[in-house]
Amino acid sequence: MASGTRKPNTKHRTAVAMESLIHIEDLYKSFGEQQVLNGFSLDLYGGENLVIVGKSGSGKSVLLKCIVRLLEPDSGVLEVLGQPIPQLNQYEMDRLRTEVGFLFQGSALYDSMTVRENLEFPLRRHPEKMKGQDVESLIVETLESVGLAHTIGLMPEELSGGMQRRVALARTLILRPKIILYDEPTSGLDPITAKEIIELMLKVQRRYQASALIITHDMDCARVISNRMIILIDGRNHAEGTYAELSKSTDPRVQAFFK
């Protein structure tokens, strides 16, 4: 461990509630002979943006998929909002998933549905989550928050890559989750659009007060958005700290990310 801290730095602790929304301890996941996660641990606290940085194939996306149980971990403790993910039944898991938004790397918009239907879909599935609220105004308000209210009737194929990412973010936000998981939010975007997405992520986080776990290898994104960072190497926490702390690390494997 380069900086050795597990919890946010003191300055950050004053800004966020010290409630662990995601608690992961000694998480292991392998695919056949290949060990992808090798005793990984983290705690995501209320209101913070935790960035996980690692090389391609280091298991970052696998970690996110374990958190939402798209993949089952081999062993370890994995709790989201205090609930043990591997032990939940399907009903409990589906309820919990309404509290955890997931922004996919490729946006993953339903391409047979319009923008409106994409946003409507989670609301129709979980009417209890937004009881008493008008679906139409909720959709418009959420689209306005990502600056795309005018695209409401368009199909995903009619949108640019950046716009698709924004609509996907709107769909993630529509159920007002407590935690948002971002899988490479700026990948495949040009630098200007990537910057817009990062600013948008900060804006919506302030507006909806969600905590964020961000997987990226875009160090600009990490610098702007992170309260705290974890460097993931060989499937375990190699280093942990703020961007400023890690950028000063003398560890050559950590430094490699900042060059």
Partner: peptide, 20 residues
């Protein structure tokens, strides 16, 4: 259609939104 939804992670997106 389903193959395309699978490789573009639309099926996974459906699952994480709490839909079977």
């Amino acid at each position: 259609e389903l193959g395309s939804m699978k490789v573009t992670e639309q099926i996974a997106a459906m699952e994480v939104s709490g839909t079977n």
